[in-house]
Design a protein around this nucleic acid. Structure first.
Length: 967
RNA sequence: GCCCGAGUGGUGGAAUGGCAGACACGGCGGAUUCAAAAUCCGCUGCUCGAAAGGGCGUGUGGGUUCGACUCCCACCUCGGGCACCA
């Protein structure tokens, strides 16, 4: 439809607040903030102590942080900036509330997509990354976020990753002193070993008798960053190995959904397990949601129990198991090792045992034990066949195979230390090598899995906990008195589970058959990736192993190479091939590491994307420091609480998505604790208050073929949806190209302005909840800003229209109640209700302006200051037009007059039997007696009470009256 | 399977023991307009009633209480996390 009539008259007032005016105001103030350095946040000393805000360093600090974004090629959609706007509103409020607020935004710019794009197009990842960062910065700038532009570091910047490498060196050069329960420099370990004040704990020769290589191997084995050969998650589809945290429950890569295989490979590991206890315990002092704490607790997976050693018949090596139920030890009727357990090959006998003295040959039990694999002539063959069977199963099959128990008898036997019972040893894939010792004692009577296995293999079941009456007969894992659990030295019978555990652990420790222990699910962090676009390790190899480069040789810059692609494959047996290995000129390097110039080979793996994001918040504090990761006194300033004490966590408020619950947040806490132990930072935790913003999703529409149609072209008619004359079905999902439902901040800024967009995102609902985007609703907040503008500005002249007359009492009271509400809502991030309060006040102000012709200055100015955190551009403009000079960014937030918060009269509901029948207007300070009398005097109430008996009268002054009556 | 979280009008949501549905969208009616709306005003939970007024109502069923969206128990549905973790 075109409208080409020449006679069209646009009678919209010239100075009405619409999209065009909003855009011009926003551009003006964004430029002004930039040239005036409005959001340059001063450090107390040293670098970044600049005018114009230098004196603010004397104020209490507040460190507000967003999880920094990965700048993807697609740019931002409306879902991305939700948290960024939230922190900006909070930061702007706190600036007006007397804090020196640090708020900045960097870029987490290493990562796979740029590398994959590079592979497809031949563009260098650095070029792609820079272009994407430019787009992101432009998109973020137009939102009017009050970031300090000097602090927005990029992880790909060599001035940044030089310090990522430096931190790696700190970790590499540290070991965990369990007696002191903290990390220390390995030089101290070396010194103590040399002085004999500490003894090596590896059963090797005395320290003095070891040669230099042996000593080096020992020290290397203690480092917090080490090269380990362990079964790792190898993802040939991505051409790289992955951390446990990056693999989904069904055995696929979180990114790309490729199959992942366990393969023993030599890789860099970080000894995060040494911090398991502290990572767990220190959660208690953090202001995080319980659900995130719970996810971390579950991931760390601490469980208390015991290690028990079982002698193997005919061998001198014992099998150690971990159990959380040592109280059931008497009921252990067989053992199971993980198929890949080291001891399996040692204990497997040459031939199947002669079963005559061990089992009842008539029942054929030994045959059952052998299972389907036992047809093999020898145990070794059976074990081999089973291992092949188990290894061929992917993790997905292993979990989806309805958990049917499979396994094979090894032909070997162990001895139950409590009663000397000779029990068979199996291998089965329901025992995992990666947890505990990779071996279990099986107690079918009290463990469901063991019960299932025992049934399948016809193994004996001995109850050692009395199940309750009426128990249906399967494994009983609950509490109850111990039975069948005594020998000459210890008697558990009759004890409850907890007491029985305590007693048996004591016995185990006395006899040396075991000890109480704690076990964790958490594994060491696999830290190397076979990728190009990541931080190179500051490591070279000599013929004996890894050597750290000295700090003076940092940074180790990424070399230029022709082909960035990781070598990907469908073949699970393909080997990792790091792209950096192709940089032959770079790999072999002549260095003097103290023994004269020699040729070394560089580490060709790179660090995972998590490395750069582990510590970026620290670099925000001192981004230009070339001498240190962060200056100590600067770090301490930003770590102090308002009362001057060093805080528990450096960042006061951290906002980001819940998807980082165990990945980034665990790794980052770990690095921070290492840096804390080594004296580089002064708080034990990085993030004091964590807030998880929800997600914005959007409707998507499919036609009759199930194809997505462009969501912006769909019309709604009476709850049905139409695209191009065809009815379509509405769905709901992630914003993205594939669902054809992308809405960008750029469109919103174009159509309504950034202030409207910001405010709409904050008004949609509580910040921590997910909700659907609905462009139709945006107009509501736009109208609000338009009315606010009209209340302050003459739409025909553009001049301010305020009166110096004082506001009427009712309006003034409404103002102060709003101030009071906002001072509660803003710190609590309750922006949706804050906005509702502002709407109400503005509606009241509008009524007044309609009647009186102008807004009283006291109301208008307070209103502008209160709106400023949410809609800063229009607030600045109004503030200026009202005759104020300079930015309002640091103006004081209005303070409510407490005397105006209390009304003279209040409306009190009066209920009869819990139903509201009347509303009484009474003096606010009326007492109960008078209130009850007033209620009875109300004609409506009197009518209901007439002829009835009042059984009870509940009178709550100022709240309500309730009469309980009967006929 | 286990562990968390959430279910309120047509829609987003408000109210954390005391008037359910603030605020906003949409809808309806009116003003303005040749016509419009990113303008202004009014109404808008469902239901019975001409009205006055009444009844019902926060996933379902029970309970505690003078009073429950709110607290307790059981269940249903949806979302998230973990998943043979000994």
């Amino acid at each position: 439809m075109t409208n080409d009539s020449e006679s069209d008259v646009d009678d919209t007032p010239v100075h009405r607040y619409g999209a065009a005016l909003a855009r011009s105001i926003e551009a003006k103030w964004q430029d002004r903030w930039e040239t005036d350095r409005t959001f340059w946040t001063p450090n107390p000393a040293g670098r970044l102590l600049d005018e114009p805000n230098a004196d603010r360093a004397a104020l209490p600090k507040l460190f507000v942080l967003d999880m920094f974004p990965y700048p993807s090629g697609a740019g931002l959609h409306v879902g991305h900036p939700l948290g960024f706007i939230g922190t900006d509103v909070y930061a702007r409020f706190q600036r007006m509330n007397g804090h020196n607020v640090l708020h900045a935004m960097g870029m987490d710019a290493f990562g796979l997509p740029a590398e994959q794009y590079a592979v497809q197009t031949g563009t260098h990842p650095a070029v792609t990354t820079e272009a994407n960062i430019t787009t992101y910065r432009r998109q973020l700038r137009q939102l009017g976020l009050g970031h300090d532009p000097r602090r927005g570091v990029s992880t790909t910047d060599v001035h940044y990753y030089r310090w990522t490498q430096w931190i790696f060196l700190q970790i590499f050069n540290a070991w965990y002193d369990r007696s002191a329960d903290r990390a220390r420099h390995v030089d101290e370990l070396d010194a103590e070993l040399g002085a004999g004040t500490r003894l090596p704990d590896d059963d090797g020769a005395p320290w003095a008798e070891r040669n230099a290589l042996e000593r080096r191997a020992y020290i290397d084995s203690k480092r917090l960053a080490y090269v380990g050969e362990a079964p790792v998650n190898w993802c040939p589809g991505l051409g790289t190995v992955l951390a446990n945290e990056e693999v989904t429950a069904d055995g696929r890569s979180e990114r790309g959904n490729f199959p992942v295989y366990k393969r023993p490979l030599k890789q860099w590991m970080m000894r995060i397990t040494e911090y398991a206890d502290r990572l767990l315990a220190d959660l208690d002092d953090l202001d995080w949601t319980e659900s995130i704490k719970l996810m971390q607790r579950n991931w760390i997976g601490r469980s208390e129990g015991a290690r028990v050693d079982f002698e193997v018949v005919g061998h001198d090596q014992a099998i150690s198991v971990f159990t959380t139920r040592p109280d059931t030890l008497f009921g252990a009727t067989y053992m199971v090792l993980a198929p890949e357990h080291d001891l399996v090959d040692h204990i497997v006998p040459n031939d199947w045992p002669d079963g005559s003295d061990l089992v009842d040959v008539d029942t054929g039990r030994l045959g059952n034990w052998r299972g389907v694999f036992g047809a093999a002539r020898t145990p070794a063959e059976a074990v081999h066949a089973y291992r092949e069977f188990a290894a061929a199963k992917s993790d997905l099959e292993r979990t989806s195979d309805s958990r049917e128990k499979t396994g094979v008898f090894t032909g070997a036997f162990a001895i139950n230390p409590t009663n000397g019972a000779v029990i068979p040893i199996f291998i089965a894939d329901y025992v995992l090598m990666g947890y505990g010792t990779g071996a279990i004692m099986a107690v079918p009577a009290q463990d469901e899995r063991d019960w299932e296995f025992a049934e399948a293999f016809d193994l004996p079941i001995l109850r050692t906990v009395q199940p309750p009456d009426g128990w249906d007969g399967k494994a009983f894992a609950g509490d109850g008195p111990a039975i069948n659990s005594h020998n000459d030295a210890v008697n558990l019978d009759g004890l409850g589970v907890a007491d029985a555990k305590r007693t048996i652990i004591q016995w185990l420790e006395t006899t040396g058959a075991g000890e109480g222990t704690v076990n964790y699910k958490l594994r060491d962090w696999l830290f190397s990736r076979q990728r190009y676009w990541g931080e190179p390790f500051p490591i070279v190899y000599d013929e004996h192993g890894p050597r750290a480069l000295p700090e003076s040789m940092l940074p180790v810059e990424l070399p230029e190479i022709a082909d960035f692609a990781p070598t990907t494959s469908d073949d699970p047996d393909a080997l990792p091939a790091p792209p950096l290995a192709r940089a032959e000129q770079w790999v072999d390097v002549e260095l003097d590491l103290g023994e004269g110039p020699r040729v070394y080979r560089r580490e060709v793996n790179t660090m995972p994307q998590w490395a750069g994001s582990c510590w970026y918040y620290l670099r925000y504090l001192d981004p230009t420091n070339e001498d240190a990761m962060v200056d100590r006194s600067t770090e301490q300033y930003w770590s102090r609480t308002p009362d001057g004490q060093l805080g528990n966590g450096t960042v006061d408020l951290y906002v980001g998505g819940v998807e980082h619950a165990v990945l980034h947040l665990l790794y980052s806490r770990f690095w921070h604790k290492v840096l804390y132990d080594l004296g580089w930072v002064s708080t034990p935790e990085p993030f004091q208050r964590l807030y998880n913003q929800g997600y914005i999703q959007a409707y998507a529409y499919t036609d009759e073929r199930g194809m997505y149609v462009e969501a912006s072209e769909v019309d709604e008619r009476d709850s049905t949806f139409w695209h191009d004359g065809v009815e379509v079905k509405r769905e709901y999902g992630k914003i993205g190209k594939s669902l054809k439902n992308v809405v960008t901040p750029d469109e919103m800024c174009e159509d309504y302005g950034a202030d409207t967009f910001r405010m709409y995102e904050m008004f949609m609902g509580p910040l921590d909840q997910s909700r659907p985007w609905n462009t139709r609703d945006v107009v509501g907040v736009h109208r609000f800003l338009q009315r606010l503008w009209r209340n302050c500005i003459d739409e025909s002249t553009g001049a301010a229209r305020v009166s110096e007359a004082s506001a009427p009492d009712e309006l003034r009271r409404a103002l102060h109640k709003t101030i009071d509400a906002l001072r509660t809502d803003y710190p609590a991030l309750g922006f949706n209700t804050a906005i509702a309060r502002l709407f109400e006040l503005n509606n009241a102000l509008t009524k007044h302006v309609e009647a009186a012709g102008a807004a009283p200055r006291e109301v208008a100015e307070a209103m502008i200051l209160m709106v400023a955190p949410l809609a800063p551009h229009v607030a600045e403009e109004l503030w200026e037009r009202m005759g104020n000079h300079g930015s309002l960014a640091y103006s004081s937030f209005p303070v409510a007059d407490p005397t105006l918060l209390i009304d003279d009269t209040v409306e009190v509901p009066c209920q009869i039997n819990g139903k509201v029948r009347a509303k009484l207007v009474v003096a606010a300070d009326i007492d109960a007696t008078a209130l009850e009398a007033a209620a009875k005097a109300d004609p409506k109430v009197a009518e209901h009470l007439a002829g009835k008996t009042i059984v009870k009268a509940i009178v709550v002054p100022g709240r309500l009256v309730n009469f309980v009556i009967k006929p």
